[in-house]
């Protein structure tokens, strides 16, 4: 019984939050790693593009809600997703056309392209705030809980409870679907294979007749899907605020680098590792051990390794360690 209680406690406070947060990070990190693999630069505007796509979803959701459309218990935002993806794709392809393509042509060093993405970051940042404002926006509707902590306690008779929200379930299911779709695309389709070939060896790929502009365009399209889905899930699960999305840049990059830049599987693994360690290291394990250990050995302190103030620093410490000991990341990424 105590063992079950401990497990449920851990599940409620560590595992479920970490897995849903990790899923959202994973989608973002996949985008970063793809851009890095194909276009060979670090996309600093990622967080803000994510906010832009989500903003489009929110605006359409509001419109749908105003029209009385609803798919209860699922959130209306899911219906608005395609529009959001289209808007994000438009933005990404537009920036590629007006900005990044020029640097590709002149074969500018990657660092210059990174600077340009900083400029895009500023502009998109400003645009999002200009259109929807800097504040929290609430666009979640539908049922909130699949089952609450109280339901769980009553059903099982345990002392500890476990709650599961619809948004968490949707996050996990959608992430799994999008990820398997992406891996299927990369491994099984002709376009996907040509993308991987391009990423592995650009010259060889060009020689075998792959059209680089097409590969680039497809990459941006995939990235648009990934960021918009990630941003919408994050917004549904937590809340939408432009500044928060900018801050997501850091853990997303940490995840991509941790897993090995350019390696999609690594990005996913990195994201879950970061999310689990962020939540796990700052969790106070006192109650957990109270259930597991005999009374005489019960801990007196909180058993918290690091105060929650330093939550975000966890991902960087991990990052630095990995970079020091395994500069290509946990899974072998590419380094140019």
């Amino acid at each position: 019984m105590d063992f079950l209680n401990a497990l449920v406690l851990l599940g409620n406070f560590v595992l479920i939050p970490a897995i849903s947060y990790g899923s959202q990070l994973a989608l973002g990190a996949l985008g970063i790693t793809l851009i890095y693999g194909i276009l060979r630069f670090s996309h600093f505007a990622h967080g803000d593009v994510m906010a832009f796509g989500t903003m489009a979803v929110i605006l359409v959701t509001w419109w749908l809600q105003g029209m009385g459309v609803s798919i209860d218990p699922l959130p209306t935002a899911l219906l608005a997703l395609p529009v959001g993806i289209a808007v994000a794709a438009g933005l990404l392809l537009g920036t590629d056309r007006t900005i990044y393509r020029f640097y590709r042509k002149v074969k500018a060093p990657p660092i210059v392209v990174v600077m340009a993405s900083l400029g895009v970051m500023f502009v998109v940042n400003g645009l999002v705030r200009f259109i929807i404002g800097p504040d929290d926006q609430n666009f979640a509707d539908g049922a909130r809980f699949l089952f609450t902590v109280r339901d769980f306690k009553e059903a099982t008779g345990l002392d500890e409870g476990l709650g599961l929200r619809w948004s968490q379930l949707i996050t996990i299911v959608v992430t799994l679907a999008v990820m398997s779709g992406l891996f299927w695309f990369l491994n099984r389709t002709r376009t996907g294979k040509s993308m991987r070939a391009f990423s592995d060896n650009e010259d060889l790929a060009l020689l075998s007749g792959i059209n680089p502009e097409r590969v680039v365009a497809v990459t941006w399209l995939i990235v648009a899907v990934l960021v918009t889905v990630a941003g919408t899930l994050y917004g549904l699960d937590k809340s939408f605020k432009p500044f928060t999305y900018f801050q997501l840049l850091l853990p997303m990059f940490a995840a991509a680098i941790l897993g090995g830049m350019g390696n999609p599987l690594g990005a996913v693994a990195g994201a879950y590792i970061i999310a689990l360690s962020e939540v796990g290291v700052t969790y106070a394990f006192r109650k957990f051990f109270q259930y597991l250990l005999p009374e005489s050995m019960e801990p007196s302190g909180l058993m918290q390794l690091l105060s929650t103030d330093y939550k975000f620093a966890v991902s960087f410490v991990l990052l630095v360690f990995v970079l020091l000991f395994r500069p290509t990341g946990l899974f072998k990424g590419q380094s140019i």
Binding site: V279, T282, K287, L302, D309
Partner: peptide, 24 residues
Amino acid sequence: TMVASHEDGKADYSAEVGALAAAG
């Protein structure tokens, strides 16, 4: 049982609440 801070403007506070809940 515990005095802990939270940063404004973050989207997720489950870690903060987890620590507070453990303290009781």
